[in-house]
């Protein structure tokens, strides 16, 4: 569809997702008990919100399609954006929390590795950077672990 810009497609995708979400709301609301203590009950607000979301989605979708030709301003994206960096940081974050949660990797081991990974993802890949981030991660991990275990008695993992 060459006549639809990325922005229009993005809006339409958003509307599709929101409508899907409101259907989940309706399904969830259908299993709730009927009102008992007052006339609204548990299911009223999910249904109302589901309805509002669908109406808004339709409005946004219509606006997006109508406005697709009159779109003049180029989207003010930041110039030096390197999109894969954010993705790499996100993957590092998910792996990090997964390791702590499911792998039960000790906090003091996982954290330096994570800081190393996310730090390198956001800067140049050199040995000096690697050393710096590993040391930084270890320092932060030891400090946090000490504070949490000594004062909060919280063990991470």
């Amino acid at each position: 569809m060459p006549e639809f810009s990325r922005r229009t497609l993005g809006d339409l995708a958003l509307c599709a997702l929101v409508i899907a979400g409101s259907i989940v709301l309706f399904i969830g609301a259908s299993t709730l008990p009927p009102p008992r203590f007052e006339p609204l009950g548990s299911a009223a607000v999910p249904r109302i919100l589901g309805g509002i979301l669908i109406v808004l989605s339709v409005i946004v979708a219509v606006q997006a399609v109508v406005a697709r030709n009159s779109e003049s301003e180029p989207s003010p994206e930041r110039p030096a954006a390197i999109p894969y960096r954010g993705t790499m940081v996100l993957i590092a974050l998910v792996v990090y929390v997964g390791a702590l949660d499911f792998g039960r990797v000790p906090f003091n081991v996982a954290t330096p590795l994570f800081v190393l990974a996310s730090g390198l993802a956001m800067s140049r890949l050199t040995f000096r950077h690697a050393l710096f981030f590993a040391a930084l991660g270890l320092g932060v991990a030891l400090l946090l672990d000490w504070i949490l275990s000594t004062f909060l008695f919280i063990r991470i993992g």
């Binding site: 730090g119 800067s123 991660g137």
Partner: peptide
Amino acid sequence: PRSTLLSIILVFCVT
């Protein structure tokens, strides 16, 4: 440097 600041912030957020 952002790389340093953001990495540390992420660790703080998780903790």
